[in-house]
Design a binder for these strands. Structure first.
Length: 270
DNA sequence: AAAAGCCCCTGGATGC
DNA sequence: TGCATCCAGGGGCTTT
């Protein structure tokens, strides 16, 4: 489910409510992708200072150390003073003085990992290889073009890899490439400077727009307040195989790239 | 260094 | 209704 917009929407939905809370209890369900990395009782009494985002990770700054939270494919967070009864896919629960934070993740590709600092070995392993934040000032057309020149694989897969620019997942990669008029199979190093600039703008535009719409709720995504997203309703190509392009009417195509679906318009994207 | 495949896991939709 | 197959928002790890 969660690409940058869904993670950011989740962050916005509880960051201000959990800030300053003291951790009172931690309980774990089934194992996730990685172990927590600290004895849960060690977290008791620590405070949650802030919630930041890096790529698709949420970073909970604690009075000592931080928690890295990843939602994987099917994870979602809830934060409320009163939550419904726990179900079998609720794998991490953090009870605090201001409410309970709960991770639900049926597929368990997600994770909650403790790190002593952002430079600790585990934090470096998870965050170290990440590319630039697409919505920050550091994401610049010139640098983006230069980075693409180094890569021979298909632009869609380069976007997904996340080592040049973070946060673009399977939905928004297809959407950004449509917006930029670029064929997903085009080798990244073949993209001209002006076209790279156009893709740069498209990535920013599609992600920012998706955040505004509360993300995409394809099956089960909701933010930490339980609210759904609506960006999927305005998707131009994602999930629209066989349907007419909203711009030119040509039938949208579905192909596989690296075992993942890619959608594009063969007329609008060259 | 980069690229390509594999795999982790559960559940919903579809087909016979 | 039962069972097999395919598919799904991610990404680390291993092998070329």
């Amino acid at each position: 489910m969660p690409e940058l917009p869904e993670v950011e929407v989740t962050r916005l939905s509880f960051a201000h409510r959990i800030a300053g809370a003291t951790i009172e209890a931690v309980s774990l369900g089934q194992s996730l992708r990685w172990p927590l990395g600290i004895r849960p009782e060690k977290l008791l009494g620590r405070r949650v200072l802030a919630v930041r985002r890096r790529g698709k990770y949420l970073l909970l700054d604690l009075s000592e150390g931080l928690l890295l939270i990843h939602l994987g494919m099917s994870g979602s967070l809830s934060f409320a003073s009163q939550l419904p009864e726990r179900t079998k896919h609720d794998h991490v629960e953090l009870r605090t003085s201001l409410g309970t934070l709960r991770l639900n993740d049926p597929r368990r590709f997600g994770a909650v990992v403790y790190a002593q600092s952002e430079t600790s070995p585990i934090a470096r392993k998870l965050l170290g290889g990440l590319g630039v934040e697409p919505l920050s000032e550091d994401f610049r057309p010139e640098n983006f073009h230069a980075a693409l020149q180094q890569r021979k694989s298909a632009i869609k897969q380069v976007l997904l890899a996340g080592d040049i620019v973070v946060g673009v997942g399977n939905i928004y990669a297809s959407e950004a490439l449509f917006l930029a008029g670029i064929r997903p199979t085009l080798a990244a190093h073949r993209i001209s400077r002006p076209r790279a600039a156009r893709l740069h703008a498209a990535v920013r535009e599609v992600l920012a727009r998706a955040v505004e719409k509360g993300g995409s709720t394809l099956r089960d995504f909701s933010n930490a307040q339980g609210e759904n997203g609506y960006f999927q309703l305005e998707a131009m190509v994602y999930g629209r195989a066989g349907l007419p392009c909203k711009v030119c009417g040509t039938t949208i195509r579905l192909i596989k790239q690296g075992q993942r679906s890619t959608f594009y318009c063969p007329a609008c994207q060259k």
